[in-house]
């Protein structure tokens, strides 16, 4: 373009912008260009870009929703785990309590049996001791009566059996 003489057909050294002879040319090609761009954009480029942007927005929204759901699921799993732990704990407590109660009832039965045995033996023993006591008292009575008769006889008295027995009995009571 350096070879073209400056504004040769443009009327001297004026601005090429004001050379009206080139206006139809410029306007024609501008209109063609704008129409071409408009059709390419409105038919192909803009719908495509809009679709891509919408798709991306959708993808992002979906991903966020999916992440949210996974998080929810993780929380649920955690809750289930906690619940299971809690259940297991209470189960274990129950088993322990059951076992304790079992043992306790066994123990109670055994204790009762033992108590009854002990009570029976105690009663038997008491009876035996009572018999022995009674035997002993009778023996003492007889011995005391005999002894008293002998002593009275030794002093030269005549022992009245009835009187001696009454005295001995009174003494033994006292």
């Amino acid at each position: 373009m350096a070879d073209t003489p400056a504004g040769a057909e443009a009327g001297g050294a004026g601005m090429p912008q004001l050379d009206f002879s080139t206006f139809p040319n410029q306007i024609f090609w501008l209109v063609v260009t704008l129409l071409v761009i408009y059709f390419i954009l409105s038919r192909v480029a803009l719908p495509r870009i809009g679709a891509v942007l919408a798709e991306r927005q959708g993808t992002i929204t979906n991903d966020i929703a999916a992440a949210e759901e996974l998080k929810q699921r993780a929380l649920e799993a955690e809750a289930a785990y906690d619940q299971a732990l809690l259940d297991a704990r209470s189960e274990a407590g129950k088993i322990v309590a059951d076992a304790k109660a079992d043992i306790q009832s066994d123990l109670d039965v055994q204790m009762q049996k033992a108590d009854a045995e002990i009570a029976a033996q105690t009663a038997e023993s008491e009876k035996a001791i009572g018999e022995i006591n009674a035997g002993a008292a009778d023996a003492v009575k007889a011995v005391a009566k005999d002894t008293a008769k002998e002593i009275i006889a030794a002093f030269g008295g005549k022992a009245d059996a009835k009187t001696v027995t009454a005295a001995v009995t009174a003494r033994m009571k006292g």
């Binding site: 373009m1 002879s21 080139t22 139809p24 040319n25 410029q26 306007i27 024609f28 090609w29 501008l30 063609v32 260009t33």
Partner: peptide, 14 residues
């Protein structure tokens, strides 16, 4: 001459 349909540098750059 430059007619309205002439291919010019305007055409090329557009």
């Amino acid at each position: 001459p430059i007619d309205w349909y002439t291919i010019t540098n305007v055409t090329m750059w557009m």
